[in-house]
Design a protein around this nucleic acid. Structure first.
Length: 929
RNA sequence: GGGUGUUUAGCUCAGUUGGGAGAGCGACGGCCUUACAAGCCGUAGGUCGCAGGUUCGACCCCUGCAACACCCACCA
């Protein structure tokens, strides 16, 4: 083995071996365990969120596979309708062509080509993460079988009356020229204006203060071209008498009524609202209540259409706004223009301002689907981890609106609806089926609906469609419901909720029993990683390393706002002046696990991954040490047979391993990846390496060690390391496999891979309270000496002598039993015992219980330095005594606290008082020296 | 406007049913001690956001407040 760990030497070849040997496929007859991957965009690339998520999933998958479960991690990708279409369209535009020129069929063909060409990108990246996905079952949301499932679902929902088509006001993206769902609209506060316009009253009516016009306020002047009414609050005294009267709509000339509606807030603005039912969701409802006309004045590209006066037709909506304001101003009808902050809705893909627009769309009637889905979470069939996300789920589900599923796009599942020339609509699995069912002869021309389904409609079927539905497959029987869905809180509504609804409807089962919600990955400053901000990290750059120049180039290329480039470059060079070193996959995975505290967003900090890269190296070197001592030059185990005798240290480390395994199981079973990672780290570094390996050295290197004792220690070194590797494998698969293949044969295990070994159980190793106590004692004594040495600046190689005094019989026994260990760990030469009461030479003192551990000053230790050290200790003890006295002096405590707690505190006080007394004596003795 | 989460060492975060707080990184001092300088040894850092309350006892439970973050919502 090399003397430092090099991830690149092992990762790729090990993964290829695993995959070629089909280790990722389910095997055995254990209970089924299944996770479906949240399908990444087929043409996308791996980002930090994926890497995080897949690390957690793979840890669970590998854990369960090792536990013997019949484990399936279902792979698949998503066709990602809008974003993929946008991408290909941009490619076309770069070639100077447009989607319209190319035509639908050719365009879709081109998207398929792009999918084939780039789809392997994400797969390759997932492999680099070590993800043990079953590639042999890979699915795609538009493969033939999946398309059949989508079709089936649509038709059945239609037949059940849960899908309908209607003309409604929808969120319209004028740039993409498609409807989008409520969820795809992101509103943010922007600075705008509030325009106050005068609408002249008709029939000689006047307001209370004698004006012959009403003043309405609006943030969207251009929509006034489609106004159908002016509304006031029914109780508003100012306007009550005007209700039922009419105003003349300026610029248009239309007479429109003044109506009364509760919707109006009399406190806001003038208390008069223009009502535009075709261009505002609220106005639309008001319009419906008052039977107002819907006057649509906008085309699909948000230009003004033929329903508006000729002067505005063809103008873009923002240009129309300027013209409307200018024209009203010219007529003296603008009362006031004030600055106003408002929430502006934008499409999450295009960033374009969303226009409420009247169009024909397909909708899912959602309430009948939502009710059982709410119940499934209420009754615990589906549980969220952490639990509080259930509230988020409930609050959305209980106010859910019908779901607009049609998109005016080309890439996606085409809606299986057909129209005859009269516009009559028929829904069926195919045109042939439609003709048969409705007796439509070949003479009747049918035209298929040109819209496609929104992507989330098809991903909602993910858990069961990937397992073969609508066929009744064995996979569905075995793996469905799946065990856990691992995902971010940002897609609970988009995906999780819809999956629960659809899966219950079509399989009668929940899609998964648990939903583990992880946080979002942010940068070291807590900012969301984004292309625009140029603060994103590529997981592969963390694995392989990247130069500063390359990183800058990546972050500044293809920016939507190229003017940001200099700032991004400056920031990047400041944060990563030397680029990013290569850390390897295991270190990256370990970092993600360690950061995965319950549901919180995580800040990704290079210091963390560096620490875990170091941990990998530590493990690697611990293995080298073990192999050096347990393997002969020709690769065989040293002295493998014969009786073994186990030392205190051997028993102790096995006991610690017992506790590690208990903790690991508990952590993994409760999705506490951070606790799992910490437990592994702490055991490997601070118990196995820091103490156990050091404790074996005197024994391994001593001439006088018996063969049986040597065997015991070698066997323990190997056994514990081997179990540790298995315990850590789910989190760091590559390094554990590489080391395991060296170690396992020495224990007589010639099986090929750690992946399929059992996950170690705490019951495999005995807890040993006696060994734990003994090593704790030893650590106390050693740390006492080290503290003296450190504070007195005694060189590490300079040996010291030690005197023991006082203490119990047990202290004497332990001191004898651990003498060699103690001498080595604390660099001690001679040990002597002083009789109780005997005078000690001037010394530096450490207390372990009531045992005095003394290092004679003997010119090594400065008297003043020792006095300072003792005073510090006395200060601490004094404080402790005071605290305990206060507590025990409180009658309430002594009376009401449990007796065992009181006893414990009394014991602590006695110990502290005794220690304080001894320390004070010691200071006095130093004074006399 | 409604809701959720967060606030613990210089930084990033743990803290399991209430019994006077831990880790990693960083800082400081000392070491190339034959697994590992990506390492070893030692040290110093905290009124647990603020104010009340419950309790013998509160980082933990309750109330209020503040700051930050996020989600939802129709105020033109």
């Amino acid at each position: 083995m090399e003397n430092s760990f090099d991830p690149h030497r092992i990762e790729q070849t090990l993964y290829d071996e695993w995959e070629n040997a089909s280790y990722f496929a389910p095997s055995g007859n254990g209970p089924a365990y299944c996770i479906v991957i949240p399908p990444p965009n087929v043409t996308g690339s791996l980002h930090m969120g994926h890497a995080f998520q897949h690390t957690l999933m793979d840890a669970l998958i590998r854990y369960h596979r090792m536990k013997g479960d019949r484990t399936l991690w279902q792979m698949g990708t998503d066709h990602a309708g809008i974003s993929t279409q946008m991408l290909v369209e941009r490619q076309l535009n770069a070639e100077g062509r447009t989607r319209a020129e190319v035509g639908r069929d050719a365009f879709v063909e081109r998207v398929w080509q792009w999918k084939e060409a780039s789809g392997s990108n994400i797969s390759r990246q997932l492999r680099r993460m070590g993800s043990s996905l079953d590639w042999s079952r890979e699915r795609f949301t538009m493969d033939d079988g999946y398309a059949e499932a989508v079709l089936e679902v649509f038709v059945r929902l239609f037949e059940d009356g849960l899908i309908y088509r209607g003309q409604r006001l929808v969120n319209w993206d004028p740039q993409l020229k498609t409807a989008i769902s409520d969820l795809e609209v992101e509103s943010s506060e922007e600075q705008g204006k509030l325009w106050h316009f005068r609408y002249p009253l008709l029939g000689g009516a006047t307001t209370k203060d004698g004006k012959d016009y009403l003043v309405v306020a609006t943030t969207r002047p251009e929509t006034m071209l489609g106004d159908s009414a002016v509304a006031v609050h029914p109780d508003d005294e100012r306007y009550r008498s005007l209700v039922g009267k009419r105003v003349r709509l300026p610029l248009v000339g239309r007479e429109i009524p003044i109506i009364a509606d509760d919707y109006v807030d009399p406190e806001f603005g003038t208390g008069c609202v223009k009502i535009t039912p075709a261009h505002d969701f609220n106005d639309n409802e008001v319009g419906a209540r008052h039977d107002l006309a819907l006057i649509n004045v906008m085309a699909e590209d948000a230009t003004i259409n033929g329903n508006a006066p000729a002067a505005y037709q063809g103008l873009d909506r923002f240009e129309a706004r300027r013209r409307v304001v200018a024209d009203l101003e010219a007529q003296g009808l603008v009362e006031l223009i004030e600055d106003h902050k408002l929430m502006v809705p934008r499409g999450d893909r295009s960033g374009a301002v969303i226009e409420p627009l009247l169009t024909d769309q397909w909708f899912v009637k959602i309430q009948p689907l939502a009710d059982p889905a709410i119940a499934a979470v209420e009754n615990g069939d589906v549980e969220f981890v952490p639990k509080q996300y259930e509230n988020l789920y409930f609050s959305w589900m209980r106010n859910i609106q019908d779901w607009c599923i049609s998109r005016q796009q080309w890439w996606g599942h085409r809606i299986p609806a057909y129209y005859d020339e009269a516009g009559q609509v028929y829904v069926g699995r195919s045109e042939t089926e439609v003709r048969q069912q409705h007796g439509l002869g070949s003479g009747i021309v049918l035209r298929q609906d040109s819209d496609v389904l929104e992507t989330w409609f098809s991903s909602a079927l993910w858990s069961f469609a990937t397992l073969g539905w609508p066929d009744e497959t064995a996979d569905l029987e075995v793996y469905h419901p799946t065990d856990v869905l691992v995902t971010g809180h940002d897609i609970i509504f988009f995906w999780v909720a819809r999956m629960i609804m659809m899966t219950l409807k079509f399989t009668g089962e929940v899609p998964f029993r648990k939903v583990y919600i992880h946080g979002l990955v942010r940068d070291a400053e807590g900012q969301k990683m984004s292309k625009t901000k140029g603060n994103g990290l590529d997981p592969l750059d963390l694995i392989d390393g990247v130069s500063a120049d390359e990183l800058v180039a990546k972050r500044t290329s293809n920016l939507t706002q190229p003017q940001m480039a200099p700032r991004i470059e400056k920031q990047t060079r400041k944060e990563f002046p030397d680029g990013i070193p290569s850390y390897g996959t295991d270190a990256l995975r370990f970092t993600f696990c360690a950061l995965a505290t319950s549901g919180r967003d995580v800040r990704f900090d290079l210091n963390r991954i560096e620490g875990y890269r170091n941990f990998c190296n530590k493990l690697w070197n611990a293995a080298r040490f073990v192999l050096m001592n347990c393997r002969t030059e020709d690769g065989a185990a040293v002295d493998p047979d014969g009786a073994a005798e186990y030392s205190l240290a051997d028993r102790w480390i096995r006991s610690r391993l017992h506790h590690l395994l208990a903790d690991s199981h508990r952590a993994l079973d409760t999705y506490r990846f951070d606790l799992y990672a910490n437990a592994v780290y702490d055991f490997a570094w601070h118990e196995y390496c820091d103490w156990y390996l050091e404790l074996t050295k005197p024994l391994l290197w001593s001439e006088s060690t018996t063969p049986a004792a040597l065997r015991g220690t070698r066997r323990t070194l190997l056994t514990v390391l081997e179990a540790l590797l298995r315990a850590a494998h789910p989190i760091m698969p590559f390094i554990t496999e590489a080391i395991w293949r060296e170690v396992a044969p020495l224990l007589g295990n010639d099986r090929p891979t750690i992946m399929l070994e059992g996950y170690p159980e705490s019951g495999d190793f005995d807890a040993d309270a006696e060994a734990d106590a003994a090593v704790d004692w030893l650590k106390g004594v050693v740390l006492g000496i080290r503290n003296i040495r450190g504070e007195a600046d005694i060189r590490p190689r300079q040996t010291v002598d030690v005197l023991f005094q006082g203490g119990s019989e047990r202290d004497r026994q332990l001191a004898t039993a651990t003498e060699d260990l103690f001498k080595r760990l604390a660099t001690v030469d001679a040990i002597d015992w002083l009789e109780p009461g005997a005078a000690a030479p001037a010394n530096a003192l450490a207390l372990v219980g009531d045992l005095k551990v003394m290092v004679p000053l003997a010119g090594l230790i400065d008297l003043d330095a020792e006095r300072t050290r003792l005073e510090k200790e006395i200060g601490r003890k004094h404080q402790e005594v005071g605290r305990l006295q206060g507590k025990l002096g409180n009658a309430g405590f002594v009376d009401k606290a449990p007796a065992e707690v009181v006893d414990r505190e009394r014991q602590k006080l006695a110990d502290a008082e005794a220690a304080l007394h001894t320390l004070r004596e010691q200071v006095a003795a130093l004074g006399n020296a």
